[in-house]
Design a protein around this nucleic acid. Structure first.
Lengths: 217, 217, 217, 217
DNA sequence: CATGAATGAGACTTCATTCAT
DNA sequence: GATGAATGAAGTCTCATTCAT
């Protein structure tokens, strides 16, 4: 049940609605990225989308709806990539790696949208916020399940207590790429970033573990 | 030389300025946390601080300045805690643990302020943004140095390439506690969170490392 | 090329823009005349013009722009009257008289606007002020040329040194009618005023000229 | 009866009041000249005068009062100069010349104050305005009397009808020097200006008078 | 379906004035 | 008599949203 927020549209022709909304998303992401959600006017979004303010409001009910459109676009992209993965045959650690990379790639492709979604979304009002958080939670749960799977297979060792945190960690590691991009992109390409992040998540600091250690004896 | 943004104040008495600004920070954090920076009016901040709108503007030059006040308060707190640590005699892994924990505790104590700073800060205008990013960078570099130190002592193994990323990772791990608090606080207390985060950052997923491996054989 | 200040308008329809701006000018002149520019609020101008404050700002960029609108209206009127004169066939003293009278009549017709322009204009900020002064200068030069022409024809005797001053004098003689109207209108009708002013400008005090003199001898 | 506007002062010591008010006038003239009356804050005047805002209000009742102080200073100066003239023994045309020159010199000396008075004064509220206009009227009447005197002596020929206008003309000729200074000072020094103005007022354009003409016959 | 002019609540900020110290 | 912190009314301008064409 892909719980899609019901955004009112005066226009009936669904094909047209979808097309126009794609335009809106593209325009909004660009504009929000440059000036932030609050500093961007609906007029600017309309203009960037190539139609008039009146037309914009034929396809949305309020400015907040534009944010939803952007959010859904982001989630849909990640979900789609994961669905493709379903058919691939990775398992164990490899599977984990693939799921993470798919997510990171998605974030990179939609970086502006993710950033916008990420920064502006939290200041929404109750109803709206709940919807977004629920989507976030769903993604976090996907990672949590994958971790549980890997644990079951014995390829990782992650206490049940730590598992939710780790799922969040992965999620945030992806978002980081957008909201710390001003610093990260000085050091890393997306490929390097993905490699290092996965490495770091897997192995940490390679501390001489005082506890479990060590092999023999 | 802690590069303090120069916020204009009409009032001369510095003692009073400091006191009033503390009130402003407290009020602003509370208000921004509830409604977000953009949705909070300056009047509301003034009211929450216990004085009139006119008085508020005797101590700041513009609404943005309030954000700076909040930022500085946050950075000052972390810095102060680190300074205390200076005199403690931790070394190696223990030292690293202490620096991280001090930061995490600071974030927890000022969680609302950190969240506000974190979410609203990025949508500032050029000049203002630069100031905040510079502060962020300085913190990241503190972690980077600590990591370099630990590396030199041989207690961790972190490639030079990965070091900046890891420093960011620690920083974000702290901020996470505020901006994903809606989810994290369901599972963890701050103590647990700190323990698990440090553990995770140190050891990752305890993957059976395919590469370096492995003891016997 | 009558260097028209570019006042931004959100509305595109030029026909409408012109019409609304006429309304604004009329309303502004009335309001400014009663309370002065600074004491009149934009809201009052909007109300007097018959639309909302929001609509007002669809046709101007700032309060100052209203003053420009008024100025242009005044200059345009005078210029238009002079253009009509072009085709008339006055020459010599008659021509001079006509140019001056046309100007005086214009001032009288738009007296409120002229007064407003006259009193409020000087306290504008750099850029804005320059624009108005340039227009004033242009008018002064028109008189200067007319005087030069008359001089060449030998119908007046005005040293080259005194010519710019005299042009200013005429200009001010017109403005006087608005800014000393509180006193002048007690004594004179506009017709009388014009007659006396021209007479005074032409003949001065009919002093027994001590210098040039005199007829015989 | 020099009808002095009663400006309230909390301070009783009259000597101190006078001294402080001199400071206020000087500071106000400078400030108003630079930024205009409305754009200048009372704080700025106080600062320029060398004391605090609180102290300023010990010597005036409201911002408007500062304008009165300036006005009175101007009128007092002119009046003082005329009083000196009383004792000189000029008569006829020479006397007229002296009265005008005294006025022009006064205007030049206090040019900033005159300009301020001139531009800002008209937008005052009823009561205040009346006071200033009355002062203006009194000055105009001085000129009118002088003209009547000269007429009686037969040194000028000015119809009774034209006399009030001419008195205004002289007054405005003085004020011109301040409010068209931006243009006039390019061409003339104050000495030249005075010479040319008097000449112009006396002789006009030296038109070949079509009417009265001419000496003989 | 598209347009864009109109609306007006509400935001930030200024500044004349007061009054306790 | 001097100070300057506090006040809050009021001003300019923005912008999400509507609706007649």
């Amino acid at each position: 049940m892909p719980s899609r927020k019901d955004i009112p549209s005066i226009v009936k022709n669904q094909r047209l609605v979808d097309q126009r909304r794609q335009q809106i998303i593209r325009a909004a992401v660009r504009a929000f990225h440059e000036k932030g959600y609050h500093r961007t006017t609906t007029r600017e979004v309309a203009a960037a989308a190539g139609f008039s303010i009146g037309t914009l409001y034929e396809y949305i009910g309020s400015k907040e709806d534009i944010l939803f459109l952007v959010c859904d676009a982001v989630y849909d992209d990640v979900t789609a990539r994961w669905k493709e993965l379903q058919q691939s045959d990775g398992t164990g650690l490899e599977r984990l790696r693939q799921v993470m990379e798919a997510y990171f790639r998605s974030v990179d492709d939609l970086q502006d949208a993710v950033l916008v979604m990420y920064q502006e979304t939290k200041s929404l009002s109750g109803d709206a916020l709940a919807y977004v958080l629920e989507k976030e939670t769903r993604m976090q749960q996907v990672f949590q399940q994958e971790l549980a799977e890997a644990e079951k297979l014995g390829v990782i060792h992650l206490s049940e207590e730590a598992r939710p945190l780790f799922a969040h960690q992965i999620l945030v590691a992806g978002q980081m790429w957008t909201f710390r991009r001003w610093a990260l992109s000085k050091h890393y390409s997306i490929d390097t970033y993905i490699r290092l992040q996965i490495d770091q998540l897997f192995y940490g600091l390679r501390v001489q573990d005082e506890r479990k250690e060590t092999c023999g004896s």
